[in-house]
Design a protein around this nucleic acid. Structure first.
Length: 364
DNA sequence: AATGGGTCCAACCGCCACATG
DNA sequence: TCATGTGGCGGTTGGACCCAT
């Protein structure tokens, strides 16, 4: 089987996505939702294969993505889940709202692996390395700038609804076989289900298998600093297009590089940039702290790659009225000229995630 | 300032599973 | 049952970026 038929076609673009491509895809998906990916490129006016569009949406354009560094809790959770699930990144990502499998996989390969090795733990087996291993790995990890970090007791789910306390510094791989099986059998969260919105938005199709409330309530104050001064970066308040605290949504004026990939963080929570000095930019862009979105068809980029945010958050949700209708989509768009984002499942996400009654692993 | 090595990450590749005809 | 199309996943890689020299 191998390569998808859509990828075989000639003249399809590859490589990094341009801001214009991002805009087209984002506008298309926010307007029509996710249907058949193979038809998305054509309908959205993109010279990409459907698979590429899917990846771009999942890994970068989804509005609920959480950007920036992983918190200590997330880190510990990833390690714990990896012990149970192995390299099943999609299933691991399902336990970490706002994170993608790709992101977690990269984080594992670039950071966590080394960190475990430094602690004398085999990242594959999660067992202590043999002396030979330790000597061998020591050379590799000796120069690693990674710190060991605090010893944070990790609340880990168990099937009984209680928690396994694990300590990231004393990782002994002490999971029960039952816990392992539960994870192994648990279906992964499909991030796309959130965004199948336009046609069936009103349905409460927002089916989150687990919540993070137990998880985030366990955060220490200091740990929440991982998300910057703005509390919206914690699990307690996932980035949301519809939540009323949109004043917290980071809209960063990018001027530091020409990377298309980074540019499109416009509509993301780019906490790294946000946490630096951009809060003032925010108030400049959105006087009064109110964010308004999509009053004028998504976003636009100026020639110098600085953002000219067109998304406008509104107190009662996002309106996509007056979405531009480009030539490519004329004729395609018979309906949905006005979408009230408040009815999108995304709303449910942020609400669910802030709900205290949502027990993390009660379903596990 | 130039450059070379290391790191990070977005995106691609190849495979598998499943649905459909 | 088989062929085909599509979605999804994990492994890999190329290039941008960072930093030491």
């Amino acid at each position: 089987m191998g390569r998808h038929s859509c990828c075989v076609k000639q003249k399809l673009r590859k490589g990094l996505w341009s801001p214009e491509e991002d805009e087209k895809l984002f506008n298309y998906i926010t307007r029509f939702g996710v249907g058949c990916w193979s038809s998305v490129p054509k309908l959205a006016g993109l010279q990409r294969c459907g698979k590429s569009c899917r990846l771009r949406w999942i890994n970068y354009l989804r509005p609920d993505l959480k950007r920036g560094m992983f918190s200590q809790q997330e880190e510990d959770l990833i390690i714990s889940l990896h012990e149970v699930l192995g390299n099943r990144w999609a299933q691991i990502a399902a336990q970490l709202p706002g994170r993608t499998d790709n992101e977690i996989k990269n984080f594992w390969n670039s950071c966590l692996k080394k960190k475990l090795l430094k602690q004398g733990i085999d990242p594959t087996t999660h067992k202590p390395l043999t002396e030979g291993h330790v000597k061998e790995e020591k050379n590799i990890t000796e120069t690693s700038p990674l710190s060991q970090g605090p010893s944070v007791p990790l609340t880990f789910p168990s099937s009984q609804g209680s928690s396994l306390l694990m300590d990231s510094n004393y990782y002994d791989g002490g999971l029960t076989e039952a816990s392992r099986e539960i994870f192994m059998s648990k279906p992964a969260l499909d991030p796309l289900s959130y965004y199948d919105f336009p046609m069936g938005v009103a349905q409460s199709a927002f089916n989150i298998p687990v919540s993070v409330s137990q998880y985030h309530t366990g955060l220490k104050a200091s740990d929440q600093s991982h998300f910057g001064p703005n509390s919206s970066y914690g699990f307690s308040s996932m980035p949301s297009l519809t939540n009323s605290d949109h004043g917290n949504v980071s809209v960063t004026e990018f001027s530091d590089n020409n990377s298309a990939s980074k540019i499109s963080s416009l509509f993301m929570n780019d906490q790294v940039k946000e946490s630096s000095s951009n809060s003032s930019n925010m108030s400049t862009i959105y006087p009064g702290g109110g964010c308004h979105m999509m009053e004028n068809a998504g976003f636009s980029w100026e020639g110098d790659n600085k953002f000219e945010p067109l998304f406008q958050f509104q107190e009662n949700g996002i309106k996509s009225e007056d979405f531009k209708t480009s030539s490519w989509e004329e004729g395609q768009l018979q309906t949905h000229n006005s979408i009230d984002f408040t009815s999108f499942p995304l709303t449910s996400l942020s609400e669910d995630l802030t709900g205290a009654n949502f027990d993390v692993f009660q379903h596990i």
